[in-house]
Write a protein that binds this DNA or RNA. Structure first.
Length: 104
DNA sequence: CTCTTGACCGACG
DNA sequence: CCGTCGGCCAAGA
């Protein structure tokens, strides 16, 4: 039985909206959720539970600093996936982060 | 309802 | 650059 709160549902939807080869930040998502750029932790919480693992590309979400931040399956896996998507990652940090990240 | 935890963020030193 | 402190939000016990 999968139970998802409306808040988490929004996070999953937004994450799935992230185009391939691009990445987003927890703060940016929080902002889209009308949290005003705050509540980034809440976004991470939702992704951590992530019942829609392959359905939601949560690995496209990184920290505001461009760092990987964390990953339920291991940050290493996240980096590998991003690199496979075409995103260059170096030392747990996104290269050309400004170019691959969607900032509005 | 209260307390704790967490894939965060920004500011200070 | 690194470590520490405070603040914000949501979910779980």
């Amino acid at each position: 039985m999968i139970v998802v709160t409306p808040f988490q549902k929004r996070v999953y939807v937004l994450c799935s909206k992230i185009p391939k080869g691009k990445v987003s930040t927890y703060g940016a998502i929080a902002k889209k959720l009308k949290l005003g750029g705050l509540g980034a932790r809440a976004v991470g919480q939702a992704l951590n539970k992530n019942p829609y693992a392959p359905r939601v590309p949560c690995h496209r979400v990184v920290a505001s600093d461009g760092t990987i931040g964390g990953f339920a399956s291991g940050c290493n896996k996240k980096i590998m996936l991003l690199k496979k998507e075409g995103v260059v990652v170096k030392n747990n940090t996104i290269v050309d982060f400004e170019k691959v990240s969607r900032r509005e």
